Amino acid sequence: NARWTTEEQLLAVQAIRKYGRDFQAISDVIGNKSVVQVKNFFVNYRRRFNIDEVLQEWEAEHGK
């Protein structure tokens, strides 16, 4: 399903906090979204969920 429920959106943001840009890991956490759908989520929801800021926090924690 290409549509993202609110629950899936929140799950994705939590997974980004945990896995950074590991699209496969994020896809696995959500369970019903492909890697391509996760990559599209990054692009389409970047502003709404401040994904750049979430990634900066992840990179700071993981030394990337």
Rank of each mutant, 00 (worst) to 15 (best):
N1M: 08
Q56R: 14
Q9K: 10
I30T: 05
K39I: 03
A15L: 14
W4F: 04
A12I: 05
D22P: 01
A15D: 00
V29M: 13
A2M: 14
F49T: 08
W58P: 07
G63S: 10
V13P: 03
R17C: 10
Q14G: 13
R21L: 12
L10T: 07
L11Y: 06
R47G: 13
K33E: 01
S34F: 03
V13T: 03
I30R: 03
W4T: 00
D52Y: 04
V54N: 05
I26V: 07
G20S: 01
N32H: 01
K18W: 05
F41S: 01
A2H: 13
I30E: 02
V13I: 13
L11H: 05
V36M: 12
K18P: 01
Q14P: 00
A12Y: 11
N44T: 15
I30G: 00
E8P: 00
I51K: 00
L55C: 02
E53P: 04
L55Q: 06
V36A: 15
T6K: 15
T5A: 03
V13F: 10
I16Q: 00
Q37K: 00
L55E: 11
L11K: 10
E61I: 09
N40Q: 14
V13R: 05
V36K: 12
V36T: 14
V13M: 15
W4D: 00
S34Q: 03
D52C: 06
G31P: 13
F41I: 00
D52A: 07
R17W: 01
K18H: 05
L10I: 09
V29H: 15
D28H: 12
H62C: 10
A2L: 12
D52L: 04
V43L: 12
A60K: 13
I26D: 12
E53L: 12
F42N: 04
A25T: 14
L11E: 08
L11F: 13
N1F: 15
K18C: 06
R47M: 11
K64V: 13
E61L: 08
A12V: 08
D52G: 08
K18M: 09
E8V: 00
W4E: 03
I30V: 04
F49Y: 15
T5Q: 01
E53C: 10
N40V: 04
Q56Y: 06
N40L: 09
R48I: 15
L11W: 06
S27E: 03
V29L: 13
G63D: 09
A60S: 13
Q56N: 09
K33Q: 00
E8M: 09
Q24S: 11
R21S: 12
W58M: 02
Q14W: 11
D22S: 03
I30S: 15
N44R: 14
G31W: 02
H62R: 12
D22Y: 12
V35I: 02
E8Q: 06
K64E: 15
A12L: 08
N1V: 05
G20L: 03
K33G: 01
Q56C: 07
S34W: 08
F42P: 02
I16V: 02
W4M: 04
V43C: 07
S27L: 02
H62F: 07
F49I: 12
N40H: 14
A12H: 09
W4P: 01
I51T: 07
T6I: 08
L11T: 10
Q9Y: 02
S27R: 06
D52S: 06
Q56H: 11
N40K: 11
W58F: 05
Q37S: 05
Y19M: 07
D22C: 05
V38F: 01
D28N: 11
Q24V: 09
T5C: 04
E61P: 01
V13W: 04
F41R: 02
F49N: 00
K39Q: 12
R47P: 08
Q24K: 13
E7I: 06
H62S: 11
F41G: 02
V36L: 14
R46A: 14
D52T: 05
Q9A: 11
G31C: 08
T6E: 10
R3L: 09
W4I: 00
S27Q: 04
T5H: 00
A60W: 06
Q24M: 09
R21W: 06
Q9W: 05
L11V: 14
D22E: 05
Q37P: 02
V43F: 07
L10M: 10
V54M: 13
Y19V: 03
Y19G: 00
A15H: 06
E53A: 13
R47N: 14
Q37A: 10
S34D: 14
R3S: 10
A60N: 08
K18F: 02
R48T: 14
R48A: 12
A25R: 12
V13N: 04
Q56W: 04
D52H: 04
Q37V: 03
Q24E: 12
D52W: 03
K64P: 08
N44V: 12
R46Y: 07
I16W: 07
L11M: 11
R3I: 15
V54P: 06
L11S: 06
H62A: 12
